[in-house]
Each structure stands twice: as structure tokens, then as C-alpha cells.
């Protein structure tokens, strides 16, 4: 059966995993269950940059796949790819694994007082964004759509924690195909 899994890479609060699961269930319309926490891959930490390699994390997620669904993984770590200074998340386009980093979704990261509502909204938006990529969606030109590209937290806050009508239709189509392929 085609399904969705939510998993933690390393330590992630149950509350955040719950937000991701609830959001995924609602938006992707597939049965969602938890996977056991995935261990942080050794050697993923880059001492010089003080960040974690996103590719290593994604590979660890792929390795832990039960083989019958896509995995939405969360990490508290600040992740990067060599070319870029940071990432909010990364996914295999149309693949198995999607990863969201919560590190830069918190107001505290920017020296501001914590704000649970803002954080929750950003987390939902990024879960939809990376999850959308795992279903093959590409960036949307609509700045308000969860699938639009955000390269800063300001841009992230311009997005809704929902898909635009066009991406919603495209996603429904992809989910239908996904279900059809697996059954």
C-alpha cells in the first residue's frame, strides 16, 4: 500500500513530528504513520561550517525506507549543501525522501523571542514544500503558494501553509498516480 511516513533524524520533539503528520495527512490525503527515529549519519557534521551535510541526511533517510512509501523527515540541525550557505530543506524530486530542517524556522535563530505560532506555520509550509517536491512538484511562481521558492525567512513568511489551486490540482494528480503505481 502506498503511504507516507513521518520520521525524525536525530532528536526531534514529538510536538513537531505531530505537526508534520497532521499537516501531511490533511494535504496529501494518504495514510501517514511514524517511522522509528533515524540515527544522525556519522561524519555529516562539517566542523569548519558548523553545519550538517543535507545529502548525508537524505541518504540516511532513503536507507531507512521500509519500501512502501515516501518519507517526510524532520531534523533540528542546520543543514547545507556545499554550494549554498544553508537550506530550509531538501527532497529527492519525485523520489522517496524529503527532509525539513527546523533550525532556521525558529525566531530565536534570528535573535528574536520565540514565537510558537510563527514556527508552526513555517514548519507546516516547509513540510508541504519538501513533500510536494517528493511528489514531483517544482517551484511555483505564485509567491503565496507553499511551493514557491524561499531563499530567506522573509520569503518563507510570504508563503501560505497551503498549496495554490494549480499546485493542489497537480499534487492530486501525482498522488493519484502514486496510489495507482503501488496497488
Amino acid at each position: 500500500m502506498s503511504r507516507l511516513y513521518v520520521a525524525a533524524v536525530g532528536d526531534v520533539s514529538a510536538g513537531n513530528l505531530g505537526v508534520a503528520r497532521e499537516c501531511a495527512e490533511h494535504e496529501f490525503r494518504l495514510p501517514v504513520s511514524y517511522l522509528p527515529a533515524i540515527a544522525e549519519p556519522p561524519g555529516a557534521f562539517d566542523e569548519r561550517r558548523g553545519q550538517y551535510r543535507a545529502v548525508d541526511f537524505l541518504l540516511a533517510v532513503v536507507k531507512s525506507s521500509p519500501g512502501d512509501g515516501k518519507i517526510l523527515a524532520l531534523t533540528e540541525r542546520d543543514i547545507f549543501i556545499p554550494m549554498l550557505t544553508f537550506l530550509f530543506g531538501q527532497a529527492q524530486l519525485g523520489g522517496v525522501a524529503a527532509l525539513v530542517s527546523t533550525a532556521r524556522l525558529r525566531q530565536e535563530f534570528y535573535g528574536l523571542p520565540a514565537d510558537a505560532a510563527v514556527f508552526r506555520r513555517r514548519l507546516r509550509t516547509e513540510v508541504l514544500h519538501e513533500g510536494g517536491h517528493a511528489f514531483g512538484l517544482i517551484h511555483c511562481p505564485d509567491r503565496g503558494c507553499a511551493m514557491s521558492l524561499a531563499t530567506s525567512v522573509q520569503q518563507l513568511d510570504l508563503k501560505q501553509d497551503a498549496f495554490c489551486a494549480g499546485c493542489r490540482r497537480a499534487l492530486a494528480e501525482r498522488v493519484r498516480e502514486y496510489r495507482g503505481n503501488e496497488t
Binding site: I81, P82, L84, Q90, L93, H139
Partner: peptide
Amino acid sequence: EAMCESMAAWLREDG
């Protein structure tokens, strides 16, 4: 390779 593929993946997400 990691640099290449991660950059490519990031650009592919942009279509």
C-alpha cells in the same frame, strides 16, 4: 560528486 548532485537537485526543484 556531492557538490554537483546537491546543486543539481536544488536547481531541478526550480524546474
